[in-house]
Design a protein around this nucleic acid. Structure first.
Lengths: 353, 353
DNA sequence: CATCCGTTTGACAGCGCTATCATTTGTGCT
DNA sequence: AGCACAAATGATAGCGCTGTCAAACGGATG
């Protein structure tokens, strides 16, 4: 009986308002209703108005899964960060979000907590969503993760760093070079005995340390005693602790570079507490130029990174590739950095002596 | 001809490895392959091994959209925050993430940038994903957003604040009460002339201000000159600026409460620069107890919130409701707060005088 | 050896939508 | 009026997976 067909209370019916319901209400075929929502200019105004009315009357909400399945477009971009508490990532994420949201894309976020071995599992999980694009942090994905991403045929942007062999596209800057430049800047200001304090030592911290070492090797004197690293996570407290340790053991140091601003700020706080004068007794430099860094006493010399722009550019790369179905004219973008000289170091060490 | 059927290079074929491919390779039916992945104990070991082998050989990745469509489970939780740069949210998000990820759920993140009028559009977009649950910030959703969420039949947790009439479930604390308690604490320490500086003035800042006003009304003397608010976004700089403005106009003030730690820290930095002594010349109190707050000179008196736990609890509420298909024993959880007394205020103002 | 019952496997249909192609309708032209 | 052509609408058939139910299987029992 025709009843069976009209009565759509099948055993699997979800009770949800579907596009067919809307179409029935508007007196059109489902496909026309679909078009009215997806490409309104293909539907006459008369029907469009009717369909919109039915939509709002029924409170229709499209089913994304069905749309994705039929069109193989998910409008989802997956983002993998190693941390959210590290203040650089929210800034990058804002750039990504503000570019993607107006374009109709949504962000699926995952956090590795700096556990590289979890990355592959996370990537696998995120690939199940068939995202239209993926943004991953860093360039040190292991071989099988690379393969996974490559085979998925999904546009990928690696961010934060630059690499010669990107998986797909790449937006970042050279941590090595930035750190090298900072140290060179100090050396040019007259500093010779420069220490380095690092924590967490993820690949980027590592490369910052290498930049420091290279500059020291070339223009000063490398001294193993001048370098302290910790595997612990970064914190203000740790910065203060490591500073005290290094400066006690090597009181001859003129300046200390920290692998990030958090550690450097911790050292400045510690100096403030102990009455150690900056830069008279010791100079301090950081990395990242976080929001608080120029407010510290004294303001912190550091390296500034255009984080928001990096996120924006990464998102733009993805959008380009998704919409043009072809790689953008360039597949790598160097967002650069700038050494910011502030009062925690001397512009000219000699003039003081 | 039967060729047509075997030749599955249909015009719509996506080229993707499907479960049927895996099943064919393993010599089983697709449904058995499906079961081997979803509920392995229902499949004999012999076949299971074969199927797993086929999976890894073919590099099969499940299609989430198809799974969602067929099972009406998406394993996605949507999270709406008003900001990511506000450091409280990454902490909450970490709590959410760390609870949801092990349970196999993924996080879809959206950011309103404190634009309440965008919330409805965002909720609508997120509902299209048919998330298994939604976490929204605050309790001030407008009527149509509430309806949208209610009709969606999706578990919802409102976080950060408490409300008498939650949409569904609710995890937070009373900003009014917390701020009230902080001011009462200062009053009990002997403070009488207490100012308030607020920025951004989102609903929670607003309620913190109300708490301040209530305590002042009850135990001190309300003075309109003692309150400054700005619609601008919070920043260290703004904290310093507003502080200078208020303290210049009302030098008689003994203490100033700030609507958050960022503003308070800005004021402390400003005092440090100008040689204004804290708490001798003016006492400063904040709100949120951010990571840097106890490192400031002097350390900041503030209100500490269990942010990570709040995120965790919200996620647990969702998981409970999703898995038990029924509301948890309680639908509201007060995570509480604690007033943290530090050196930026006196524990006993009298003793100094 | 027939019977029963629990376990494993499979057939079928459908989740809600859109790509594709076919059909209808409207428009301007000779 | 008759034609070509573009625009608007519809019919059909999946996208890849899982819920439902039926069938086949295997071992234990009398």
């Amino acid at each position: 009986m025709s009843n069976d067909k009209n009565n759509n209370i099948s055993s699997r019916s979800t009770g949800r308002v579907t596009l067919s319901d809307v179409a029935a209400k508007a007196g059109v075929s489902p496909i026309t209703a679909s078009r009215a929502l997806k490409s309104p200019d293909q539907v006459s105004e008369k029907l469009r108005v009717k369909i919109y009315a039915a939509v709002s009357e029924l409170g229709y909400i499209p089913n994304h899964a069905a749309r994705s399945l039929a069109s193989s477009e998910t409008k989802i971009i997956s983002v993998i960060f190693p941390s959210l508490s590290n203040a650089v990532f929210p800034d990058v994420l804002d750039g990504i979000h503000d570019t993607l949201t107006p374009a109709g894309y949504r962000i699926l976020l995952a956090n590795t907590h700096y556990a590289m071995d979890q990355e592959e599992a996370l990537v696998r999980t995120l690939l199940e969503q068939s995202p239209d694009g993926i943004i991953v942090t860093g360039i040190d994905q292991n071989e099988s993760t690379r393969k996974l991403l490559l085979n998925s045929n999904t546009p990928v942007v690696q961010i934060m760093e630059l690499t010669d062999c990107p998986i797909d596209m790449n937006v970042g800057f050279s941590h090595f070079q930035a750190s090298y430049d900072l140290v060179r800047h100090l050396q040019n200001s007259g500093y010779k005995k420069i220490g380095f304090i690092g924590a967490r030592m993820d690949p980027r911290s590592q490369r910052r340390m290498e930049g420091y070492k290279q500059a020291m090797h070339e223009y000063s004197e490398t001294n193993e005693r001048y370098v302290i690293t910790s595997q612990s996570n970064t914190s203000f407290k740790l910065g203060g602790k490591l500073f005290t340790q290094l400066f006690t053991e090597c009181p001859e140091l003129e300046a200390i570079c920290f692998s990030n601003d958090d550690l450097a700020a911790g050292a400045i706080f510690e100096c403030n507490r102990k009455g150690i004068r900056i830069p008279e007794d010791i100079s301090i430099a950081g990395f990242n130029d976080l929001h608080f860094s120029e407010e510290l006493i004294p303001p912190l010399t550091t390296v500034s990174i255009p984080l928001y722009e990096m996120g924006k550019k990464a998102a733009e790369y993805l959008l380009y590739k998704i919409e043009h179905r072809t790689v953008p004219p360039s597949v790598q973008h160097d967002v650069g950095y700038s050494v910011i000289e502030r009062k925690s170091t001397y512009a000219n060490l000699e003039s003081k002596k």
